[in-house]
Amino acid sequence: MIRIRFHGRGGHGVKTASRILGTAAFLAGFETQDSPVYGAERRGAAVTAFARISETPIRERGMIAQPDLIVLADDTLLNDPAAGVLVGQETASAIFLNAADPAPLVAQYHIAPPARAFDVTARTRELLGRPSALSAGVASAAAKLCGCITEANLEAAVREEFSHLAVSPDAVTKNVEIALSVFAALEPAVLSDVPRAATAEMARVPYVDPVLGASTVYNSGNAEQRHTGAWRVERPVIDAGLCTRCGLCFVECPDGAMSLDATGLPLVDYDHCKGCMICSHVCPVDAITHQPETAAW
């Protein structure tokens, strides 16, 4: 069995990518499963999806803790421990990185499995002319690494999955083109069946006082510990020289990810700013500019 785990952000299309791979494997005659982690899936937030491909019936379900392939759509997720990109990398035979050159990432994040790379974002931008969902390219990379899926299966799967989305025929053709170029550029991974750890110690769960026996949070306002700044795809940058201290951006920030200094100058809390860019839009003097935060789109 090949277990594939996709990582991306809401909007990247990793759920669609897992479906394209699932459909391609299905068309190739394999037993297959695909599924997303279903949660509060928000644009920019980390999203994980899974696929399994096998010649025999699949007796696994749900999350994949020990993948054979890790497919990463956005390398900024490596900074977000909660995204868990490298969890179980010990068993992985390969990792796919959406980048022109994997070497710096491999070194910086101590990536253990052999890395394969392709700049899907660049290719997507080249063909579609704008940053967009990466599903076709990312699915294609996974399909090629699996080594058991033909170009024809892949193309049919891309067409099939895109037919469920409200996209124009032209966009479908371009996505097929992206998929095929990624497919041609990569080599199949050398898949080795690393034995999976089978024994874990069991816990005995005791009775605990009702204070911690119900889902009550006493640490009010502790959501600040969650750094939603990792969701950001664009960064608002305030030009203090232009700013008139009108306070509008501060008022309209949904998340309260801004504060005002003593002079009334707004400061962005980049640990939490989700990059919605409302502040930039409401600024009467255009003092807030957009800076790209991630190369993934």
Binding site: G39, Y207, V208, G213, A214, S215, T216
Partner: peptide
């Protein structure tokens, strides 16, 4: 003087299991 958030959503199975199991233990007690 003591804000609390009660009935907070739990979106993760092991922690949810803990809370449900606590009800079982409480009723056993």
């Amino acid at each position: 003087s003591r804000p609390i958030a009660q009935g907070v959503a739990v979106l993760e199975g092991a922690t949810y299991s803990h809370f449900r199991y606590q009800m079982h233990r409480a009723i056993q007690n």
